[in-house]
Structures are given as C-alpha cells and as structure tokens.
Design a protein around this nucleic acid. Structure first.
Length: 427
RNA sequence: GAGCCUGUAGCUCAACGGCAGAGCGCUACACUGUGGCUGUAGAUGUUGAGGGUUCGAAACCCUUCAGGCUCCCCA
C-alpha cells in the first residue's frame, strides 16, 4: 500500500459514532439556548487577521492562529474565536437591531496549540451572548443557560459547578491592597494559576513579582474569603436572580476566578467538573462592556460565554452520562433474493419509504446469510425477504430480529406490520 | 517554545538482542431461503517512517512523524 497521508495535527475525524456525540452536544446546547429565546447565528470561518490584531493579544495572533496568505497575498485567519466577528456584525447593524440581542452559535474554531487532553487544534464551540443590557440579572440569565445545558446532559450540582467572581470587586480589593495598576495583569494571571501550584511555591512566585509580604497576606485573605461577594452589590443581585431562575445550587462564588483581563469588565464565570479529573473549564464567560466601542461601534454592554465540545465530551464520557448512541441507520432491511427479484426488492423498499419508514435495501444479490448478518451488524430490527415463493403469492416474509419470529404478510400490509413490531419492541 | 512517556495484525496488547504471537474482530465451511450462539479451518504484518550499531534489531543509538502527560498559553 502506498504511504498513508496523515491527518493535519490536532484535527479530528468524525466517524458516525463521534458524529453522534457532536450532534448530541449540539442538540442539547441549542435546546438550552432556544428555551431562553436565543436565536442561532454564525459568522465566517475565515477572517482577516486585522479583526483579531485589533484587540486580541500578541500571543494569540502571532503564535496561536492559523494564518496564511491567500492567492492574492492577503493574510487570512481561520477564526480562533467568535466574539470579534460578533462585535463587527452587531456594530454593522447597530441601528436596526432590536436590543437586547440574544444570539447563540455552534461551529468550528482553530487554534495552533499543542494538542493534549481536552485540547485540539480544531474544535467546536458553543457561544451564547446577550448584548444591550448592563445588569447582573442579564449575567444570571447567561449562567442559567449554561446550567440548563449541564442539567440536560446529566451533570448534577454534585458533578459540576459554576464558579463566579466579579472583576470590579477584585479591582476594589486590589485598590485596598495598594497593588499598582501595572502589576494587576500579572497578579491576575498568578491568581488564575494558584489552584495549580503548591501553596509555598505560589507565595515565593508572588513575592518575586514585587508584591510585598503584607500585600501577599492581604491577597491570600481576599482569595480565601468566600463571603467577599456580599460586598458587591452586583454579585448580591446576581445571586438573587440565580435563585429566582432556579439554578443557584450550581453556582458558587470563588474569588480565585479571574479569566484574564482581555475583555472582561464585571462578572466572570467558569464551570468545572468537581472531581477535577479534567482540569480544564467546561465553559467560561463574563461581561465585556467595552468591546463594541473598541471595535468602532457605539458603546454597548454585553455578556456571554463559550463552551468547547472537547472537554464536554470527555467529561460526559468519563461520568458515563452519554446515552447509548444507536448507530442503526434504519430499523428495516430489505434483502435481495436474486438477480431476477432485485427490482422487486428495490420497489418494495421504495413503497415503504413512501409510507414514511427508514429502510435499508441490500444493493446486490448475495447469499441471504450474508444479508442477515449485515442486518444484524446494522442493528436493524426487521428483515424483509421477497423470494420466489413470496412473489408468487404477493407476500413478503417479515422477520423480527429481536425475537426471531417470522411471518408471511400481504405486500400491501407490510408497512402496517412493521409499525406494529416497532411499536411493540421496547426502546 | 521546553521536558518526560508511547507507536507491533482492523482493535487491545505480548514478545525486550536470536523463527513476530495471543485474545477480540475478519473470511470460509458446518447451515447452497435466514442474523445473534456454537464448532472447525484460514488470512492477518515493510514492528509509524528514515538512517546507524551488530553475525543477527520490534528491542540498542540518532533523526523524523504522530499520539499521550506536564510546563507555557488559554481569546
């Protein structure tokens, strides 16, 4: 055999089983968003690099994007995230859209990173955003949509939680500790990393960054204070709204959640699986009130989150929460007895499809044994045989593969029989 | 960008310097008008790729590709 051409590193191939999982996540995500009245939308998969260069970090644009020159020499990028496209599209129609805008999307994204557990270079992401409202109640709605998804796939509050913090609250705490503005990005990143490090190591790490012993003590007090939310009016309102929305049991305040500083201006949140076997967030998001103005639109408050399909799929798999994806393409298979009866079998299959049934027809006259084995592999529940005997009497043999019973049925009653058998068989 | 580990039959893995194997799956037959279960027989292959050491390499060394786990990063 010639040398195999390999897949591009970090891409994934979706055989029918994987496709079923992807569609399952897509279906549950869409259902959660639609139940809140959100509309599905999408942007281009390819964008100019300028879209991201404007507001995304150097790291992203230069090292983690799939960027290449098209045939005219222009630099184009496979989209690494959706929010800049959203901001542009909203800005373009800002005068004619009815706010608040509530949109969701599910599609492919690309990032040039080292593939590892929970991370590939090509992945699917569910994005949900609300634009035009600046209220903690809007934040609560977004969290509730995420929780609705988690609930619908069987992630109970014991298995997964949403951890919430607020950037403005943290800023005022940093003020109180006299942590200078220019050090806040670094400090925030260190807070983000804290859960992954040994406590003693983290202390020296922070001190090395020029934070005083007193500030460190204060910082640790803040990060260990899980009642801190009571000082934030926004968070108090958020939790009240979460309770009203019936999702409070999933949500916990955690001052260690930072999510970087790129867009986020207020509430930030991340969902994690509680046992921590997958250390990556299931979903994450927050409020980004400055983004529209940053891309040239009128100022517009916004809140949103994104969820990746890779981490979600791993967690559902590890927790045994995935339903059994029956890859059966059709419950009925029509065999082909021999060359002379091939046309009759095809015609029978067509009749049944017109009657609304999903029907596989074997495409060539091979041994019936082989066709039955194929039916079994395809998890068909009924096999129809139209041989010389049946053809002579205008009948069809209908075999129930689940209990092994076979009956002769008049051809024009076959569809009815099939429906009866399918209705009688559990699942 | 850095470190460590792993690539052997379609799949899961064994052989660890001396004839490349097992289980599952696959194919055929028993059963030429009927699947699952059973029995019998059969085929698995450039040991990821390329180079080197050696009388001899799947094994040891180098390079490369891919995957995994970390660091980094996480829009």
């Amino acid at each position: 055999m010639a040398s195999k051409i390999q897949t591009v590193k970090g891409t994934r191939e979706f055989y029918p089983e994987e496709m079923a999982l992807r569609n399952y996540i897509y279906g549950k995500a869409g259902a959660a968003a639609r139940s809140f009245g959100y509309q599905e939308w999408d942007g281009p998969f390819i964008e100019t690099i300028d879209l991201y260069a404007a507001k995304s970090g150097e790291e992203l644009v230069k090292k983690q994007s799939f960027t290449f020159a098209d045939r005219s020499g222009d630099l184009v990028t496979l989209r690494p995230e959706l929010t800049p496209s959203l901001a542009r599209m909203i800005a373009a129609k800002q005068g004619e859209l009815t706010f608040p805008v509530r949109w969701w999307s599910f599609g492919p994204f690309w990032r040039y990173e080292q593939p590892q557990k929970g991370r590939s270079r090509e992945f699917f992401q569910w994005n949900v955003d609300m634009l035009g409202v600046d209220s903690p109640e809007a934040d609560a709605e977004l969290i509730a949509i995420g929780v609705t998804f988690m609930r619908s796939v069987g992630l109970t509050p014991e298995l997964a939680s949403v951890y919430v913090n607020n950037r403005r609250l943290m800023d005022s705490e940093f003020d109180a500790l006299d942590i200078p503005q220019e050090k806040r990005l670094e400090v925030s990143n260190m807070v983000d990393r804290r859960s992954k490090m040994e406590p003693a190591k983290w202390d020296t790490y922070v001190l090395d960054a020029g934070i005083s012993q007193t500030q460190l003590g204060g910082l640790k007090a803040v990060l260990g204070n899980f009642d801190l939310w009571k000082k934030s009016d926004e968070l108090v309102r958020l939790f009240t709204a979460l309770e009203a929305l019936g999702v409070k049991e999933y949500v916990k305040f955690d001052p260690n959640i930072m999510r970087g500083l790129l867009y986020y201006t207020g509430t930030v949140f991340e969902a994690f699986e509680t046992s921590g076997s997958v250390r990556r967030a299931i979903l994450g998001g927050g409020r980004y009130d400055n983004l529209l103005a940053d891309v040239g639109g009128q100022p517009l408050p916004a809140v949103g989150f994104a969820m990746g399909d890779v981490v979600t799929g791993i967690i559902l798999q590890e927790k045994g929460l995935l339903p059994e994806f029956i890859p059966s393409p059709a419950p009925v298979l029509v065999t082909v007895f021999d060359e002379s009866l091939l046309r009759e079998s095809f015609a029978l299959a067509a009749e049944l499809r017109n009657a609304g049934l999903k029907v596989l027809c074997y495409p060539e006259p091979v041994k019936l044994q082989k066709q039955f084995k194929f039916a079994d592999k395809m998890k068909a529940r009924i096999v129809l045989t139209l041989g010389p005997d049946e053809a002579a009497k205008g009948q069809v043999s209908v075999k129930n593969l689940v209990n092994g019973e076979q009956v002769l049925v008049k051809r024009d009653e076959v569809a009815e029989w099939i429906r009866k058998i399918l209705a009688g068989v559990a699942s």
